[in-house]
Design a protein around this nucleic acid. Structure first.
Length: 491
RNA sequence: CGGGGCGUAGCGCAGUCCGGUUAGCGCACCUGUUUUGGGAACAGGGGGUCGCAGGUUCGAAUCCUGCCGCCCCGACCA
């Protein structure tokens, strides 16, 4: 096999082709026979499972439980909350019939026109409506609250344009839906989940994020407030990586969900919803990977260490490898030994770099003689000779170091690619030449926000939480402003 | 929804303009031998309804008509 055929497109050449090459050649996902839908392959799914496992733990540690609600939603449900239906109506898949029949002309199967549904069903684009319709029956008293439920599910949003992991017609996610007795409690919940998302992104994905609030224009359809974590990709575009919504009483009123408080007074409940999706996979890829392929943070890598015999396996090498494998496994480190005799070491090196495995161990004759192994780290591509004695401890520390290094590197990039500007000229120049987050004053109107988007393609990603208050003038209109907001071109 | 591209072996493509042996090449795959510290070499081998349906023709991957699918670029979105 030649280098060129296996090589991935360089980031400088085409960032978009680079991304697709990594997704496909590292075996994460593939296009499917269905337009806009992808197949998540075993290696990609293993990474997603690691994400799920940790997130699920964090949800449960904060008192949430999992449940499952239907894929199909009666059409009438969707129209009960006005903003919500307006936000999603344009991208819904609709089930109209429930039976097929043989085409009378013998050409295959066709929809049986006599099997038309009384009420059409929507394939969930999100589950607020079916869930709140159910919560009405579950909630009577303040003692039923708070209700803290999450579900892991697939949803469908009929997008015009798709991109593997970042935007597909069907995607996997989790959606939390909670009900509370008071407004403050619901706001606290929405913020708590945002913190959990941020903590997960930074500590597990090694992906630095900005926590913030969305502007009215960017808010979730049906929410009073939308909180977001925003990450910056290597091409200078922002990725909305998770959102948490304070829904006020909008869904409670739409679905008539009331409870009796401890004064026997009837009240509408307060709600939140929050979600992260397989889009995080896209963020993970675009935060760390390089021109050799995927780079994975050790905490999420399905295989943390790979052992490659040089030049091929033999009794002594196998023996040395088995010992190392046992020591690593005892520490809970996942390890794979590639004892395939047909493939050359060079092939394996390239292959595991493409797959982003954090640490590679090479064992050859020279190593056996010297009592060492060759360690290669994926994040820096450094190679070093390390004594076999104490290798498991060494690797355990190295994995932590790699995790930290990836985060620090990404944070440095993010900080260096965040620019404060005070004029519209500067604003445009930074967006064109440098990209990244641009911190600027804005007059607070949707009209100005839309105008800026029209002129520059940049949107307000968020108003950062804990944003310093500062007198200034809107970069577009010159109207007074009391704080900066974060702009960027976004995925 | 507008614009563009593509559909020939598992993958990537040539052949199509100008119809004519048994449809070809690279990679991958199988067998064997020699190799092996950064994507090995040689030899042999298997694998195809040429997207689908009609039509023209002695003869269609190639020409005509219709259809289907996917990808890319834009507007909308996690």
């Amino acid at each position: 096999m030649s280098k060129d055929e296996k090589a991935i497109t360089g980031r400088d050449e085409s960032y978009s082709d680079w991304y697709i090459d990594i997704v496909r050649k590292a075996g994460l996902a593939d296009y499917s026979a269905v337009k806009g839908c992808m197949v998540i392959k075993p290696y990609g799914f293993a990474i997603w499972e690691n994400m799920q496992r940790q997130l699920d733990k964090m949800f449960k540690d904060t008192g949430h439980v999992n449940a499952y609600f239907p894929l199909f939603i009666p059409k009438s449900f969707l129209s009960k909350e006005a903003d919500h239906v307006e936000g999603f109506a344009k991208e819904c898949a609709v089930v109209t019939h429930h039976r097929l029949m043989n085409n009378p002309d013998g050409s295959g199967v066709v929809v049986d026109p006599s099997a038309k549904l009384e009420e059409e069903l929507i394939v969930r684009p999100t589950s607020e409506t079916i869930i709140w319709n159910t919560y009405r029956d579950w909630i009577q008293s303040y003692r039923d609250l708070p209700l803290l439920i999450n579900q892991w599910a697939n949803v469908v949003r009929w997008e015009m344009r798709t991109r593997l992991f970042l935007r597909t017609a069907e995607f996997l996610w989790q959606e939390g839906h909670t009900a509370h007795a008071t407004k403050q409690e619901a706001i606290d919940e929405a913020k708590l989940m945002l913190d959990i998302y941020a903590q997960f992104a930074e500590e597990w994905m090694a992906m630095p994020v900005v926590k913030g609030v969305k502007t009215a224009n960017e808010r979730f359809a049906g929410a009073d407030d939308t909180y977001t974590i925003e990450a910056l990709m290597q091409d200078g575009k922002a990725l909305q990586s998770g959102t948490s919504h304070f829904l006020g009483q909008n869904f409670a009123k739409a679905f008539d969900v009331k409870f009796q408080d401890n004064n026997n007074k009837e009240q509408y409940v307060w709600a939140t919803s929050w979600g992260v999706s397989t889009r995080l996979m896209g963020g993970l890829i675009m935060t760390h990977s390089d021109d050799k392929g995927l780079v994975l943070p050790p905490k999420l890598a399905p295989i943390q260490v790979v052992i490659v015999p040089i030049p091929k396996p033999n009794g002594l090498i196998n023996e040395a490898a088995d010992k190392i494998i046992a020591d690593l496994k005892a520490k809970g480190i996942t390890v794979k030994a590639d004892m395939d005799k047909k493939k050359s070491p060079g092939f394996k090196f390239a292959e595991y770099e493409l797959q982003g495995i954090p640490v590679r161990i090479g064992i050859g004759k020279r190593d056996l003689e010297n009592g060492t192994v060759e360690l290669a780290r994926r994040d820096t591509l450094e190679k070093m000779n390390v004594p076999v004695e104490g290798i498991a401890d060494y690797i355990e520390n190295l994995l932590v170091e790699i995790q930290d290094n990836l985060f620090n590197r990404a944070r440095t990039y993010r900080d260096e690619t965040t620019t404060s500007v005070d004029t519209f000229e500067e604003f445009k120049q930074v967006l064109d030449e440098k990209g990244g987050f641009v911190s600027a004053h804005w007059d607070g109107t949707t009209e100005t926000e839309k105008k800026i988007k029209e002129l520059t393609q940049a949107t307000i990603r968020c108003i950062p939480i804990g944003n310093p208050q500062e007198e200034g003038k809107c970069i577009l209109t010159g109207e007074p402003s009391k704080e900066r907001v974060l702009f960027a071109k976004a995925y």
